[in-house]
């Protein structure tokens, strides 16, 4: 099965993420759907790094990459305001996360000498993708500092879990990325609900309701598609009772 190349996926995620942030900035909250692609890109890079059997688990890679991305977005929100100059803010977030992600990847490769192919590229991609997601979520939830740890953890889980859950014999990129889409929808759904609760108004704000509705629809479609993939991938078990073949 032909796999989607990391550059293609990251390029698409970058454009999609920036488009999502701009749409949210200009009041179109359903633009959050454009943040799903960065989730896929980050999960794909966790897969790219973790499948070589490194000295640490998928969880560590997810926490590490998201720590770089989320910290970049949090710190960049101090001097740069997305409200007045969104382009400058997004440029700052992407640049900071890419530089720190790339540097840590190069250090892991050259100094620590962990010979994982394209480790620096993968770590930079996780950092930049999660930074874009964090920036988008910050726009929706406002600069509510109490929610920073929540934003960080909710993104981390959605990024590290798809490969962790799919790993093993018969794992393939298509199914892992589909699970990443399921978790991306789930995450934006939770963000929509939290935005409703955090708004403080008696009636839910229509923008937040739109996020919840769109995310719920996406979640249903993604779960159905993912479950079909699971069923087709395990047909050996379903029909013969044998263990799945090594692919």
């Amino acid at each position: 099965m032909k796999e989607i190349h990391i550059h293609t996926l990251f390029g698409a995620a970058l454009l999609s993420g920036i488009a999502g942030i701009f749409l949210i900035r200009y009041g179109i909250s359903v633009g959050i759907v454009f943040l799903w692609l960065p989730f896929l890109s980050a999960a794909n890079s966790v897969r790219g790094m973790a499948k070589y059997g490194l000295g640490t688990g998928n969880a560590s890679i997810g926490y590490w990459g998201t720590a770089v991305g989320a910290t970049s977005a949090f710190v960049a929100s101090l001097p740069f305001s997305c409200g007045s100059t969104p382009l400058l803010y997004v440029a700052a977030v992407v640049t900071i996360s890419l530089v720190i992600g790339l540097a840590t990847g190069v250090l892991a490769d050259k100094v620590i000498r962990m010979r994982i192919p394209r480790i620096e590229l993968n770590s930079a991609v996780i950092a930049a993708s999660t930074a874009l997601i964090t920036a988008g979520f910050l726009l929706i939830l406002g600069n509510n500092y109490c929610l920073y740890p929540f934003i960080y953890i909710v993104i981390t889980l959605a990024v590290l879990h798809p490969y962790n859950a799919s790993t093993g014999a018969g794992e393939n990129q298509k199914r892992t990325l589909m699970l990443a889409l399921v978790e991306a929808c789930m995450t934006t759904l939770v963000i929509g609900i939290v935005a409703m609760l955090a708004s403080g108004s008696e009636m839910p704000v229509s923008d937040d309701v739109a996020i919840v509705v769109v995310s719920a629809c996406g979640l249903v479609i993604a779960v159905v598609a993912w479950y079909r993939l699971v069923k087709s991938d395990i047909y050996e078990i379903r029909w013969t009772g044998y263990l799945p073949a090594e692919h």
Binding site: W64, A67, Y148, P149
Partner: peptide
């Protein structure tokens, strides 16, 4: 949260 971020970045490298 920034200190936690720095912690996670540095604690995974030695792994």
């Amino acid at each position: 949260i920034v200190a936690a971020g720095v912690f996670l970045i540095n604690s995974v490298l030695p792994a």
